[in-house]
Simulated assay, not measured.
Amino acid sequence: MPCLVLDERAYDLRPFLGADVSIRSIVDEWTTRLPELQKLADEGFTGTAELRLADLRPLPPLQPTGQIFQAAANYRQHVLDLLSAAEDRGDTSDGLADGDRRQNTRELLDARAAEGRPFVFLGSSHAIVGATDEITLPSDSQQPDWELELAVVIGRSGRRVAVEDALDLVAGYMIGNDLTARDALARWDAGVLGIDWLAGKNSPSFLPLGPLLVPAVHVGDPQDLHIVLAVNGTTMQNESTSDMLFGVAQLIAHISTVAEVRPGDVILTGSPAGNGAAHGVFLQPGDVIEGTITGLGTQRNVCVAETAR
């Protein structure tokens, strides 16, 4: 049921926008639909029942999604934290001493931000679940990890978009938790093929989205939002989107030079510092993950063990 949410109350959009309307169909026609939504919000929903948001199970806001573009290593402190975690494990596989590794990493991050390009890969929509659904931990992974992220929803098509025009393509924003099986990323037989993103990122339920899709006009500056994630009540991630190496506009511009972005596409903008790999703690069955981003609501997911089919 597509709903518009106001002050913790939800209103069914179908009596006003048509029986066949969905959030996805609204995004597909975002330029014309947004004024209709704003008018409904301003004038109220006379004659229709209101629902308590807390009584509803939020499904993923977009069904189906378009392409899922995922930015890797896009927060400065996140990269530095992963480096420190490798040092704590005594991982010297890169052949560098600790001091050299830290200095080289800082110089590389500075160079990437100044002259480089974002690193973006594609994900599977089959990993998507809702903001309160269970997260199934794969039986063959010992290092399932959280990665709370700002998710961008595209509302207009674009190809080779300039950075200064890129935010005009955004319909709105969501919360995304782009979970990772850390021990599935690196493969001994990969060599120059690099990271196995399929195995590390796309397990079923590894991408809770929502609970809300908030129009960009009501979010403000996407580089001035606060991201907080807690596991079992302990805060693990607590960072600003200002720590991104490449901001939302830069990510959209870059992606549009490689591919065409279309309405319904989702861009995951990278995760800030505080992942499990940095803390030396990974998810276990029974763990409760709670995540918030300024103005975008709250996710609460319980982790469960994978059972044999």
Score class of each variant (00 low, 15 high):
Ala19Gln: 15
Arg14Ser: 08
Leu17Glu: 13
Gly44Glu: 04
Val79His: 10
Ser84Asp: 08
Ser84Trp: 01
Asp20His: 09
Arg57Ala: 03
Tyr75Asp: 13
Gly18His: 12
Phe69Cys: 01
Thr48Tyr: 02
Ala73Trp: 13
Tyr75Ile: 07
Asp55Met: 07
Arg9Cys: 13
Leu83Gly: 02
Asn74Tyr: 06
Val27Asn: 15
Gln70Tyr: 09
Arg24Ala: 04
Tyr11His: 12
Arg9Phe: 12
Leu82Tyr: 06
Ala73Glu: 12
Asn74Gly: 05
Pro15Asp: 01
Ala73Val: 11
Leu17Ile: 14
Phe45Asn: 11
Trp30Leu: 08
Tyr11Phe: 14
Asp7Glu: 13
Asp12Tyr: 07
Asp28Ala: 10
Gln67Asp: 06
Leu59Cys: 07
Arg14Leu: 03
Leu56Arg: 09
Asp55Pro: 02
Ala49Cys: 05
Asp81Val: 01
Gln67Gly: 05
Ala54His: 02
Thr48Phe: 03
Asn74Asp: 06
Asn74Gln: 09
Leu59Glu: 08
Ile68Met: 06
Pro64Val: 15
Leu34Asn: 06
Pro58Asn: 05
Asp20Ile: 05
Gly66Ser: 11
Arg33Gln: 04
Asn74Thr: 02
Phe69Thr: 05
Asp12Ile: 13
Pro64Phe: 15
Glu43Val: 07
Glu8Phe: 01
Ala72Tyr: 03
Ile26Ser: 12
Asp42Ala: 03
Pro60His: 08
Tyr11Gln: 08
Arg9Tyr: 13
Ile68Pro: 04
Ile23His: 14
Lys39Arg: 06
Asn74Ala: 08
Ile23Met: 15
Ala49Met: 02
Ala49Ile: 06
Leu82Cys: 10
Ile68Gly: 05
Ser84Thr: 06
Gly44Arg: 07
Ala19Thr: 15
Arg14Trp: 03
Pro58Tyr: 02
Trp30Arg: 08
Leu53Arg: 09
Pro60Cys: 08
Asp20Trp: 04
Ser25Phe: 04
Arg57Lys: 05
Leu80Arg: 15
Asp55Tyr: 05
Leu13Ala: 10
Leu56Pro: 02
Asp28Tyr: 02
Arg14Asn: 07
Glu50Gln: 00
Ser22Thr: 06
Gly47Asp: 01
Ile23Gln: 11
Leu62Trp: 01
Ala19Leu: 15
Gly18Met: 09
Arg52Ile: 09
Ile26Pro: 15
Arg9Glu: 13
Arg9Ile: 09
Pro64Lys: 11
Glu8Asp: 04
Ala10His: 05
Ile23Lys: 10
Phe16Met: 13
Leu62Ser: 00
Leu34Lys: 10
Lys39Asp: 03
Leu59Val: 04
Arg24His: 11
Phe69His: 03
Leu34Phe: 11
Leu17Tyr: 11
Leu80Asn: 11
Gln77Lys: 07
Leu37Asn: 03
Leu40Arg: 07
Pro35Gln: 07
Pro61Asp: 12
Ser25Val: 03
Gly47Arg: 00
Leu62Val: 00
Leu51Phe: 03
Leu34Ser: 07
Asp28Ser: 08
